[in-house]
């Protein structure tokens, strides 16, 4: 059995069509699977969704909801986005089918999540590092020193935004004791009590 040039041309055309269709399908799937409703359709993401709702990062400056992908995926469609999307996607599917939600250890998932929160994602909103979140007041003296260091003006830090600004949108139970998280922890506890009270009321 041998192939003629005509057969090769037909094969090449088929491969080309398949490739284009594959790229379109992948793009559609990537965009669909990056929505918050898709992320939180799995049971293990419920806790993260509830924490985000009580956090200062629930809504952005224009009062619109902040999505998971806004922080957890790099911006744009470059290699940074594609590699993180692929890696985290495959990892999440693997963990979803091999582990139970109770066995997920958030002390281990914290560093993984932090590794892939791009500084550019933070700075898409917080573009002036010397103003507060509402861009009105100057930040504290300590904050200015730390951001000088981050910018390389005074020493040089290679840490990411999230290496210093921890627990910005999520707060596992073991981080609730930290003094710096007291306000966030109180809100979460209040929300949990509200849910518990409603459940009790419903049961009666």
């Amino acid at each position: 059995m041998s192939t003629t040039p005509r057969q090769i041309r037909i094969t090449l055309l088929g491969v080309g069509i398949l490739l284009v269709a594959g790229i379109v399908a992948t793009a559609a799937f990537f965009s669909f699977s990056s929505t918050t409703s898709f992320c939180t359709s799995c049971h293990e993401m419920n806790v993260h969704k509830e924490e985000l709702a009580q956090s200062p990062h629930a809504k952005d400056y224009d009062e619109s909801a902040i999505d998971c992908a806004d922080c957890h995926l790099p911006r744009g469609l470059g290699p940074r986005y594609l590699s993180v999307k692929t890696y985290l996607g495959v990892k999440d599917v693997f963990v979803h089918f091999t582990e139970s939600p109770d066995s997920i250890d958030r002390r281990h998932s914290q560093p993984v999540a932090r590794r892939f929160v791009d500084d550019a994602s933070c700075q898409a909103c917080h573009d002036d590092l010397y103003k507060d979140a509402k861009k009105e007041k100057d930040i504290s003296e300590i904050g200015k020193l730390a951001h000088d260091n981050y910018n390389g003006k005074d020493g040089k830090s290679y840490r990411l935004c999230v290496d210093c600004h921890t627990n910005m949108a999520h707060l596992p139970s073991f981080d609730r004791r930290l003094d710096i998280n007291q306000e966030f922890a109180a809100k979460l506890v209040a929300a949990e009590q509200l849910v518990a009270a409603e459940e009790q009321g419903g049961a009666q």
Binding site: P79, R80, S83, R115, A146, K156, S157, Y158, R159, D163
Partner: peptide, 12 residues
């Protein structure tokens, strides 16, 4: 692109 361990910086 996303190193696990970052380079050692210098203190301010």
């Amino acid at each position: 692109a996303f190193p696990v361990k970052h380079a050692t910086g210098t203190h301010l």
